[in-house]
Amino acid sequence: MPVSQHSSRGAGWKATRLRILERDAYTCWMCGGEADQVDHRLAKSKGGADTDDNLSAACARCNNSKSDAVMVRTPYWDTEYLANIV
């Protein structure tokens, strides 16, 4: 049975995942580390959708520890990078 384009699997999800990772510069929104996954800020189990405003890049450690908890998005700021652009 084919996977729905709205599922977190399949070709539709792969394109969405890549778009979110690139948008977020492969930076985990929780710790600032290198992201290799995409997190649903509001988990699908709690009604969250596969929409760009509900998705953020995340590293495996943070994404797995978060599970389906609801967290407020606090963008990660690389203070070393910011110090060098001032």
Score class of each variant (00 low, 15 high):
residue 32 G to L: 00
residue 14 K to M: 05
residue 57 A to D: 00
residue 7 S to Q: 14
residue 31 C to A: 04
residue 50 D to G: 13
residue 45 S to N: 00
residue 73 R to M: 00
residue 6 H to E: 03
residue 19 R to T: 07
residue 16 T to I: 14
residue 30 M to Y: 12
residue 14 K to N: 08
residue 42 L to P: 05
residue 55 L to H: 09
residue 28 C to H: 03
residue 8 S to L: 04
residue 13 W to S: 08
residue 20 I to Q: 03
residue 77 W to Q: 07
residue 3 V to Q: 15
residue 78 D to C: 07
residue 31 C to H: 05
residue 77 W to A: 06
residue 73 R to A: 03
residue 64 N to R: 14
residue 25 A to H: 14
residue 53 D to H: 11
residue 9 R to Y: 08
residue 11 A to Q: 05
residue 37 Q to D: 07
residue 11 A to W: 04
residue 21 L to Q: 01
residue 82 L to V: 13
residue 84 N to M: 09
residue 6 H to Y: 13
residue 15 A to I: 09
residue 80 E to I: 08
residue 29 W to T: 00
residue 29 W to S: 01
residue 72 V to L: 11
residue 60 A to H: 14
residue 52 D to M: 02
residue 86 V to D: 07
residue 25 A to M: 11
residue 62 C to G: 05
residue 17 R to L: 02
residue 58 A to H: 04
residue 13 W to I: 04
residue 24 D to R: 05
residue 70 V to M: 05
residue 1 M to T: 15
residue 32 G to V: 00
residue 18 L to W: 13
residue 15 A to L: 09
residue 54 N to T: 10
residue 19 R to Y: 12
residue 34 E to S: 08
residue 40 H to R: 08
residue 8 S to P: 08
residue 24 D to A: 03
residue 38 V to T: 01
residue 74 T to M: 11
residue 65 S to C: 07
residue 66 K to A: 03
residue 26 Y to E: 02
residue 81 Y to C: 02
residue 85 I to V: 12
residue 21 L to W: 04
residue 27 T to W: 05
residue 34 E to D: 03
residue 1 M to N: 14
residue 68 D to K: 10
residue 48 G to K: 03
residue 28 C to P: 06
residue 57 A to N: 00
residue 20 I to P: 10
residue 33 G to M: 06
residue 33 G to E: 11
residue 36 D to N: 13
residue 39 D to N: 10
residue 45 S to T: 07
residue 63 N to Y: 11
residue 20 I to T: 07
residue 56 S to Y: 09
residue 68 D to G: 09
residue 39 D to W: 09
residue 73 R to W: 04
residue 23 R to C: 09
residue 13 W to R: 10
residue 74 T to C: 12
residue 42 L to V: 15
residue 38 V to H: 04
residue 68 D to N: 15
residue 32 G to H: 00
residue 67 S to R: 15
residue 5 Q to F: 13
residue 85 I to P: 07
residue 56 S to I: 05
residue 63 N to A: 01
residue 42 L to S: 09
residue 72 V to I: 10
residue 25 A to Q: 15
residue 9 R to F: 10
residue 38 V to S: 01
residue 11 A to C: 02
residue 29 W to I: 00
residue 66 K to M: 02
residue 77 W to P: 00
residue 9 R to Q: 12
